[in-house]
Write a protein that binds this DNA or RNA. Sequence first.
DNA 1: GCACAATAGTTGCTAGATCAACTATTTGGA
DNA 2: TCCAAATAGTTGATCTAGCAACTATTGTGC
Lengths: 153, 153
Amino acid sequence: MARPRKVQELDEPHLEAWRSFLRAHARLTEVLEHELSRDAGLPLVWYDVLIQLHHAGGRLRMHDLARAVLLSRAGLTRLVDRISADGLVEREPCPDDRRGTFVLLTAKGIARLEEARPVHHDGIQEHFGRHVSLREAATLRRVFDRVLRQVEP
Amino acid sequence: MARPRKVQELDEPHLEAWRSFLRAHARLTEVLEHELSRDAGLPLVWYDVLIQLHHAGGRLRMHDLARAVLLSRAGLTRLVDRISADGLVEREPCPDDRRGTFVLLTAKGIARLEEARPVHHDGIQEHFGRHVSLREAATLRRVFDRVLRQVEP
DNA sequence: GCACAATAGTTGCTAGATCAACTATTTGGA
DNA sequence: TCCAAATAGTTGATCTAGCAACTATTGTGC
């Protein structure tokens, strides 16, 4: 049960990077969440659901959608309840697996997404992109993808 | 009410960096939270409260602690309730401002922090630090601090 | 010196997330 | 073939966070 021996200690520069990473994430998501719901009337998780469905061509199984938006299956059940009550998505039974349920983007959902996307992208550009060089963006992506490969299941 | 005109569009490399940033944050905090409570019996927010108090020399006003751990004042009230019920911190009225309350680290709190810190630092090193060069760590820090300066109040 | 605004902290209410348990279905050996 | 294990989704219970409202105190402009 002992933790595995570490090869090397965590040093100060890495810890500082980690702290800045955490603070930046907290503040950025707070601001972007606020701006998106103020200017597009859409909570960030709703946006995320819509965009994931869109990327997947308009339909996803509950299970896959849950993984895509980083939510538990139970959490997604309730979230999809709310979003579909607003008419932006709908459920459809899955024909070849009768346990399964598809979630699909409705026309109304597509419209809301088209409306919200520029708002959100402007926010990301304003608070993040604009302060980051192309070279730095490439570094961030490379580093985080490398980290993710080790930590993803 | 129109959003200000953007100077430049959000481009694909920045958007990819942003997405990787979000995913990495979600997965890393999930893993670290899980490991910390498994191996040190401490939720991450509790750790954060203890470490912030420690950095501040053992005592902080509720208001300042709330800002430090990125929580609303109401949220912190309840959090401090729970942590002090476990004996790791305690409240003390503030002598020169009778509206105010200090939160202070107890001996038990210090002990738990000493115990938890290596666990958490090992986790950060294992899942983050080890995959990031010194040069990259410096870039992350520089970028996120730059971003934070624009978005912090 | 006093009224009024601002600030510190707590509390009631509610929204949203998780875990564990449950039902229904599918899968994969013996 | 058939039964046990795995998987999909939902539901109940619970936990934690935020907002708005409240009390108490401090600061400020006249």
